[in-house]
């Protein structure tokens, strides 16, 4: 392995990682917001809106992000809406991730037992108070594992950004392989940089998960 070449490539990979992180986390933040809205609309059985969002979730969950990105990236300009690759990446990831987050939050809300809700109501708390003090804290602990899994999944999904010519890690690796044929070196760097992105999330997630499970659920 040519370590010198790897050192030379480091700044390029670093820059690419920063781009991946920036667009990735903006997209994930968006997916959390979308997921929360969809889950709450579903939970409170808001008419019409609930059905509309259901269709959104089914479409985005059951098709690949790559094609969603193509559709947005090449389609929107044809409608006269110019969109940059970075905005497209973040929007696409948010919409794709939102459908996954919605499922995770919804199952958390549904998993809080009716007796919990009823006993809080029978104490004279209002619906809003029941939601805030009793249902949400438990739902959060219940859906946390799938929430972390979704974040990791979405960080992995950022690897397709190169398809809409974002200069992310995949793009950089492929580019350098094509230019200098330092295949092994580039692949090693690619793996290392993805580890840097995802490993901390995985570790922190499982630590918090263990604590939540003990603190909140008594399991």
């Amino acid at each position: 392995m040519n370590v010198e070449a790897m050192v030379d490539y480091l700044p390029l990979f670093w820059e690419a990682m920063m781009l991946t992180l920036k667009i990735g986390w903006i997209g994930i933040a968006g997916s959390i917001v979308i997921g929360l809205v969809v889950a709450l609309v579903d939970h409170f059985h808001v008419p019409v809106l609930r059905q509309v969002l259901r269709v959104y979730v089914e479409i985005f969950r059951n098709t690949p992000l790559l094609i969603q990105l193509f559709f947005i990236y090449f389609g929107l300009p044809r409608l006269g809406i110019p969109i940059g690759a970075d905005v497209c990446g973040a929007v696409g990831l948010a919409l794709h991730g939102g459908s996954y987050m919605a499922e995770s939050f919804r199952s958390g809300l549904d998993a809080v037992s009716d007796v919990q809700r009823e006993s809080a109501l029978s104490l004279g708390l209002t619906r809003l108070q029941v939601m805030r003090y009793v249902v949400l804290p438990q739902a959060w602990a219940l859906c946390f594992p799938s929430f972390v899994a979704n974040i990791i999944f979405l960080l992995k999904e950022t690897s397709v950004f190169s398809a809409i010519s974002l200069m992310d890690l995949m793009f950089t690796a492929k580019d350098l392989i094509g230019l200098y044929y330092q295949t092994t070196e580039c692949l090693v760097l690619l793996v290392i940089f993805y580890l840097i992105i995802i490993l901390p999330v995985s570790i922190v997630g499982s630590v918090i998960e263990r604590r939540l499970r003990y603190g909140s659920l008594g399991a």
Partner: peptide, 13 residues
Amino acid sequence: VGMVFQSYDLFPH
């Protein structure tokens, strides 16, 4: 109206 249920319905968190 105070109510106590059959299942242990304390808030676990």
